[in-house]
Computed example of a mutant assay.
Amino acid sequence: MTHEVRAVVARKQGAPVSVETILVPEPGPGEALVQVRACGVCHTDLHYREGGINDAFPFLLGHEAAGFVESVGDGVTDVAPGDFVILNWRAVCGSCRACRRGRPWYCFATRNATQPMTLLDGTALSPALGIGAFAEKTLVASGQCTKVDRTAPAAAAGLLGCGVMAGFGAAVNTGGVGRGDSVAVIGCGGVGIAAIAGAKVAGAARIIAVDIDERKLAKAERFGATDTVDSSRTDPVEAVRSLTGGFGADVVVEAVGRPETYQQAFYARDLAGTVVLVGVPIPEMKLELPLADVFGRGGALKSSWYGDCLPSRDFPALIDLYLQGRFDLGAFVSEEIGLDEVESAFDAMRRGDVLRSVVTL
């Protein structure tokens, strides 16, 4: 049986997206069919539309999603029809060299569904991050489904599927923020705000938010920032140092992905401190640092992929924190919209008006 569903498609680079009827097959071995209930509008989807990821058009957009498993293919035992799940884009294989060494968050052979979803004329779609969840139903590898408490609202839960998990994990998993630490976060979009929230949950004593947008700095305070720095008016390195006794922060999270902000992060950390890059640079960007400074300052320079998360471990734990009132995941939802409003949500994202627009179905 093939399912006809409405979905958001990017047909060519830079063109507005369209809502079209697509074909989704029944799950084959190792696959799951998911009824999507909510999907956040992430900047990565806009990157796909603009051709910034690759040119495998047409794309089926959407990947920050939660919903219910409708059916599963042969051999699937980890989820069952009726399970409420968050979708993830790093379904670990369990057998690559990273998985065998007990580091599955670095899995080098993550899995996706093998059957294509298509346009009505049979043209295969490229699902964003192997998910494609701006759709009433989507087909994924069963390992991309992480079962969580069904009492969590789908609009909030789905955000763990990408941006919120990336930021939270950058601080907690990659940066290792702990009780009493000082933390600076450069860039207070959705990922940076999530890093601030993660640092708060981890017990950081001082959390410094750095951005050029006063609106974003105000949001950062809501999520736990103890101090804010407007880097359009103040040298952020000197500001962070002055707020940390002249030393710099124990952990600095760079959530922009630009050489100049990375340099700020490097010099705003304490000696032997940690810099975490979670902002995504474009391929043309180059970084220059005096090698003597890299050596002399010690510490760690890390990159964070997906918050170095293990979905089976981290998604249920963060949902539990949310339901206990210890992590305000719902506050990331700026608005709930329909499938036909994704293009306007991209505009709101560009203007910095929202943390997350969420498509609800």
Results as ranks from 00 to 15, higher is better:
C188V: 11
V191P: 03
V191Q: 02
A197N: 01
K200D: 03
V201T: 11
A202E: 10
A202G: 07
G203S: 06
G203R: 09
G203T: 05
A204Y: 00
R206G: 04
R206W: 03
A209P: 10
V210A: 11
V210W: 06
D211M: 03
I212E: 08
D213N: 15
K216P: 09
K216G: 08
K216T: 08
K216L: 08
L217S: 08
K219Y: 15
A220M: 03
E221L: 11
F223E: 00
F223K: 05
F223V: 07
F223W: 03
A225F: 09
T226C: 01
T228E: 10
T228N: 11
V229S: 09
V229I: 10
D230Q: 09
S231Y: 00
S231M: 13
S232T: 00
D235I: 05
E238T: 11
E238N: 13
E238S: 12
V240E: 08
L243F: 04
T244D: 04
T244R: 08
G246M: 06
F247I: 13
F247V: 14
F247L: 15
E254R: 01
E254F: 02
A255E: 00
V256L: 02
V256C: 07
V256P: 06
G257V: 04
P259Q: 01
E260Y: 05
E260N: 12
T261W: 00
Y262R: 13
Q263G: 13
A265N: 04
A268S: 07
A272H: 13
A272Q: 15
A272S: 14
V276P: 11
V276M: 02
V280K: 02
I282E: 15
I282H: 14
E284L: 07
E284G: 05
E284I: 05
M285V: 05
E288M: 13
L289V: 14
L291A: 15
D293P: 09
D293M: 10
V294A: 13
G296C: 00
G299N: 04
S304Q: 07
W305T: 12
D308K: 11
D308T: 11
